[in-house]
């Protein structure tokens, strides 16, 4: 099943702002096994110059996944999720996400191409506060592995 090339440039927006919470940051930090106190202790975060606990650098993938999830769930795109593996991931930060942030996420399909029996889908997610301050951009390249992997 091929990815529909007409989807290049398609934009997905979160239906409502995402609220970054202390509890979710702690849950994520626990899940990546990272004991850094700036992800957990508001006093330590304030001493470091932040308004509240900050999120780990890869936390914004949660928002990127929401955008990717909308694309993946779009039957017209023609993506077989079980054949998807993550190819590349890049983040460009203006600052860390922090508890109390209310952010929007606008995901654009910026690349669709075929290479060696696989297909590649690139998604750019711009994450900004509801007042328009850029926080982070996530660039996510997914590989849809061909039905017959090379070498088989």
């Amino acid at each position: 099943m091929a990815i529909n090339p007409d989807y290049l440039g398609r934009v997905y927006e979160l239906p409502e702002p995402y609220e970054v919470t202390r509890v979710k940051i702690r849950e994520f930090a626990d899940a990546i096994c990272d004991p850094n106190p700036l992800y957990r202790d508001p006093d330590r975060a304030r001493e470091a110059g932040y308004a509240d606990v900050i999120a780990p650098p890869t936390f914004p993938i949660i928002l990127g996944m929401e955008g990717a999830g909308q694309a993946v769930a779009d039957p017209e795109l023609g993506l077989d999720f079980s054949r998807v593996v993550h190819g590349d991931q890049r983040f460009r930060y203006s600052r860390p996400l922090q508890a109390g942030d209310r952010v929007t996420c606008r995901t654009t399909i910026t690349g669709i191409k075929a290479l060696g029996g696989n297909e590649m889908l690139t998604l750019d997610s711009d994450i900004a506060t509801v007042s328009g301050e850029h926080v982070v951009t996530s660039v996510n390249m997914l590989v849809v592995r061909g039905a017959e992997p090379a070498g088989k």
Binding site: P56, G87, R90, Y93
Partner: peptide
């Protein structure tokens, strides 16, 4: 590895990997 080295995770300006 980076955040433990630098102390402040907010010091990361850009971070990218290829799997």
């Amino acid at each position: 590895l980076i955040t433990d080295w630098v102390g402040d995770p907010g010091a990361i300006v850009e971070y990218g990997v290829r799997f």
